[in-house]
């Protein structure tokens, strides 16, 4: 800010800052405020809006949970989708962590420096391609008569093709693939800062490999694990393209439910309320991760 004033003078700098502020307000803050306002009103026809029936209400938020009957094990559809989104995103986060950890360990500490650049490049290249194209590529790979089934059949691991795209398998694979780098890089960064002599000291004191990871590497990498988990979970929970392309009606994602309420159900208030519930879910996840891993905001910012 001070630099800005220094470089452009008071008038121009003030204008620049004001312009930025207005931009942020108009494009970022205002839409949310409008949506928040929507979410607390009943869905009324245009003519009744602002009329006596247009009161503040929590019914849009409550509607997600109404009809839950735990005794008979009955769950309303939207709530079922909500649970699936939580569970699926958690699973994607967990799979990403399990897949990334050994790779990140290898890249950060075990591999020779000249190999690391190449390996990281190989990791990044697929992500130069647009997300929709990448997801469609998985659609082709996972198709009933696609290359994955052919390969598995050819190797004799399957005796008939598997329907990847009709269960949750396709969505989970696609999401893990789409968001895995958001786990990979925080992990690599965190592990890289570990002083290798700590690992050697542990080994010298008789620690087997798995104990070295349990007691030394993982505790050190905690902030990286937390950041990676938060990123992957939030991206997965709010992903739309992957479940839309690789999912089936039985595997609807909560983002799709929101979309449906907005544009097919024409119920903007309920769509807005659901969007805020999704936001709330992500915030709760972030806070619990920070709690569990005992990391603060400053650790994460690192």
């Amino acid at each position: 800010m001070v630099q800005l004033y220094h470089r452009y003078g008071a008038l121009l700098a003030t204008l620049l800052i004001a312009a930025t502020a207005i931009w942020v307000l108009m494009m970022v803050v205002l839409p949310y405020l409008v949506m928040a306002e929507y979410s607390f009103h009943p869905n009324l026809p245009m003519t009744q809006q602002g009329g006596p029936n247009d009161v503040y209400t929590l019914s849009n938020y409550a509607s997600l949970f109404s009809g839950i009957d735990l005794l008979n094990g009955e769950l309303p559809d939207d709530f079922r989708v909500f649970l699936r989104t939580i569970w699926g995103s958690t699973l994607v986060t967990f799979i990403s962590l399990v897949v990334c950890y050994p790779v990140a360990w290898h890249l950060a500490k075990a591999a020779k420096p000249e190999q690391v650049g190449l390996l990281i490049l190989l990791l990044i290249i697929p992500f130069w391609i647009n997300e929709i194209l990448r997801t469609f590529a998985w659609y082709i790979i996972l198709a009933y008569n696609g290359p994955l089934n052919s390969a598995l059949l050819g190797m004799g691991l399957l005796d008939k093709p598997y329907r990847w795209l009709s269960g949750s398998g396709g969505v989970l694979i696609g999401m893990t693939y789409a968001f895995i780098l958001f786990m990979m890089f925080p992990l690599i960064n965190a592990i890289e800062t570990l002083d290798i002599s700590q690992v050697e000291a542990a080994r010298d004191l008789g620690a087997p490999e798995w104990q070295i990871h349990r007691r030394i590497v993982i505790p050190h990498a905690k902030p990286g694990i937390a950041v990676g988990s938060i990123m992957v979970f939030v991206l997965a929970a709010s992903s739309y393209i992957v479940p839309a392309v690789l999912g089936s009606p039985g595997t609807r994602w909560f983002t799709e439910t929101i979309y449906i309420w907005f544009f097919e159900g024409q119920d903007w208030p309920r769509g807005s309320a659901y969007a805020f519930i999704l936001l709330g879910l992500c915030v709760v996840f972030i806070l619990s991760v920070m709690r569990i891993f005992r990391v603060g905001l400053t650790d994460i910012a690192k």
Binding site: D195, S197, Q198, E200, A201, A202, R203, D204, L205, G206, A207, P208, R215, I216
Partner: peptide
């Protein structure tokens, strides 16, 4: 390996946990 020898190494930077 280091864990199979009757030695203990104190590192140049100590390497405490």
């Amino acid at each position: 390996g280091p864990n199979k020898r009757p030695t203990a190494l104190i590192f140049q930077n100590l390497a405490l946990f």
